[in-house]
Amino acid sequence: MEEKEMNQNLGEQEEKEENAGENSEEAAVEAEVVEEGPDLQAQLEEAKASELRLRADFENFKRRTRQEAENRAKYASQTIVEKLLPLIDNLERALQVESHSEETKQVLAGVEMVKRQLDETLHHEGVQPILALGEPFDPNLHQAVVQEVSDEHESGTVTAEFQKGYKLHDRVIRPSMVKVAE
């Protein structure tokens, strides 16, 4: 019997050692999970923050792209308008001619109709003339080519317009060339 008890005691001791080994392995795994837990939490928070930044960047990209497309559509006619401005200037000069004969008056009436049509078409495209004469000088709208001393006008007032300026929507496409009182 003693042998049996010894074997039984040995078996129990081995079992205890195995259980202790398993418990120590489980404890080590739990320790790793506990140690990795904050790391995983930090990684998760970092991934969420990164996703939010990416979403915000994408929304900003979409907004910028939409804005650029709207601007392209809004100012698409700028090139052709810039090419038409000298034509408008020449039509205005033609209309300043004094007419004495009936034929010249008829030609000027035709030129007046063409200019009016052109003005209406440009107005529908968003082109507006810049008001200058009698207005305060604004370097964003006017280009001063001459300054003169004037008793009739306040200093900084536009006294003459040499070339009409134009805006397309809110963008100046050609400033007015003006004379300004000192």
Rank of each mutant, 00 (worst) to 15 (best):
L85I: 11
K62M: 13
D119I: 07
N60H: 12
E112V: 07
L118D: 01
V97K: 09
E92L: 05
V114Y: 02
A69F: 08
L87P: 00
T104H: 09
K105Q: 11
E102N: 13
K62W: 11
Q67Y: 13
V114R: 03
L118Y: 04
E92K: 08
Q117A: 11
E112N: 15
R116A: 15
V107K: 08
L95S: 01
E112Q: 12
V97I: 05
A73S: 14
A94P: 01
Q117P: 11
K83P: 03
E112G: 11
E103A: 12
L108V: 05
Q96M: 06
R66W: 09
A69P: 02
S99T: 09
E120N: 15
D89V: 05
V81F: 02
S99Y: 01
Y75M: 02
E120G: 08
E70I: 15
G110Y: 12
K74S: 06
D119P: 04
Q117V: 11
V114L: 13
T121G: 03
Y75D: 01
I80P: 06
V114W: 01
L85F: 09
E92N: 04
Q96P: 02
E82G: 07
V107M: 07
Q78L: 13
Y75P: 02
S77Y: 08
H123N: 15
K62N: 14
A109E: 06
E112P: 02
A94M: 08
S99I: 03
E59W: 04
L87G: 03
L84E: 00
N60Q: 10
A94H: 03
R116I: 05
E112C: 06
K74P: 01
Y75C: 00
A94E: 02
L95W: 03
R63Q: 13
E70P: 00
E103H: 09
T121P: 03
L118Q: 03
V114T: 13
F58E: 15
L87V: 14
P86A: 05
L87A: 14
R116C: 07
T65H: 09
V81Q: 01
K62Y: 07
L91T: 02
Q106I: 06
K105D: 06
E103L: 12
R72G: 05
A76D: 12
L85C: 01
T65G: 07
K74R: 14
D119A: 05
R63F: 10
F58S: 15
L108W: 05
T121E: 03
S77Q: 14
E68W: 07
V97L: 00
F61D: 15
R63V: 10
A109F: 07
A69C: 07
V111K: 05
Y75A: 01
H123Y: 14
